[in-house]
């Protein structure tokens, strides 16, 4: 636990890589099975004969089941996740700027309200939020999936904490130069919070991308389903076709992993701040 000694370092590396392998194994299993011959899916730990049949079957709609809009579902997920995440970022930044940097009566109250709401058990809101969406006539639309997730209390909280650490002198100097509050947000606050922005963005996006319960409740039509919900609905019916299900799993998982790897370096920096 102290400074690692040299002879034990090799053993520790072996340990660490072994653990890493175990943790990544389910993903490997998924990818290999999606390319495996159908008679090997879930029959072998490491399949040894491969084909593209699962992907072809999935994207052409399959022989047994009715054609399923997998590609459409992928774009639905993209639209909903992007729209929702973009809104959560903007509202988070703007509200946090007010809570951290603007002087106004009621600010403390709002700060406490955010904290209170953040720790409030949200389960109680499920049914009435569904009813609100219905009353607004938004049932079965993109807005039904986006609007209730247009603001993240966690994002507000993170940005508020981060903005507080930025010295007021920057803002005062900018004000003297005649900058508006919007300019201060976009020219000073945001450039100074790049790494945390990446962390917040990634967490929000992946949470939105993998949401099940809400997206499943407010959407009915086949062509409105997100990929995650479609996959969930195919769980039973496609049970006899595990190969294509693995292919669909890969299509759902790979984009989010690519996104994550793309921002990995900044994410690393941002996490270091977040965890302190």
């Amino acid at each position: 636990m102290a400074g690692p000694k040299k002879e034990s370092l090799t053993i520790r590396y072996i340990m660490a890589f072994l653990l890493l392998f175990i943790m990544v194994f389910p993903y490997l299993y998924m990818v290999l099975n999606s390319f495996a011959d159908w008679n090997q899916v879930d029959r072998k730990l490491i399949p040894d004969s491969f084909s593209l049949r699962s992907y072809e079957w999935l994207l052409s709609g399959g022989q047994a089941a009715e054609p399923r809009p997998w590609i459409r579902a992928f774009f639905n997920s993209l639209i909903v996740s992007t729209g929702s995440t973009a809104l959560m970022m903007v509202t988070g930044i703007v509200v946090a700027y007010a809570l951290a940097k603007l002087q106004f009566r009621g600010r403390n109250f709002l700060n406490n309200a955010v904290l209170f709401q953040m720790f409030f058990p949200a389960i109680i809101l499920l049914v009435p939020t569904f009813l609100i969406i219905q009353r607004f006539g938004l049932y079965d639309s993109y807005w039904a999936m986006i609007l209730p997730k247009a603001l993240s209390l966690w994002a507000v909280f993170m940005y508020t904490n981060f903005f507080r650490a930025i010295p007021d002198t920057f803002i005062e100097a900018a004000k003297l130069d005649g900058a508006s509050d919007w300019q201060i947000i976009f020219r000073i606050m945001l450039p100074m919070s790049k790494s945390i922005t990446i962390v917040v963005f990634l967490f929000l996006f992946m949470e939105r991308w993998t949401e099940l319960l809400w997206d499943m409740l407010v959407v009915k039509s086949d062509n409105m389903l997100t990929l995650n919900v479609l996959l969930s609905q195919m769980f039973g019916p496609y049970g006899g076709y595990p190969g294509p299900m693995y292919a669909a799993s890969v299509i759902l998982t790979v984009p989010i992993i690519i996104l994550f790897l793309f921002f990995a370096k900044k994410f690393k920096e941002g996490m270091q701040f977040t965890l302190k």
Binding site: P26, L231, T253
Partner: peptide, 20 residues
């Protein structure tokens, strides 16, 4: 990065993998 990857998994996907 490697150890963080499982956090990206959708519950639907991980459930399906485990079921298989």
């Amino acid at each position: 990065i490697g150890f963080f990857l499982p956090y990206l998994a959708s519950g639907v996907v991980s459930s399906f993998i485990v079921k298989g």
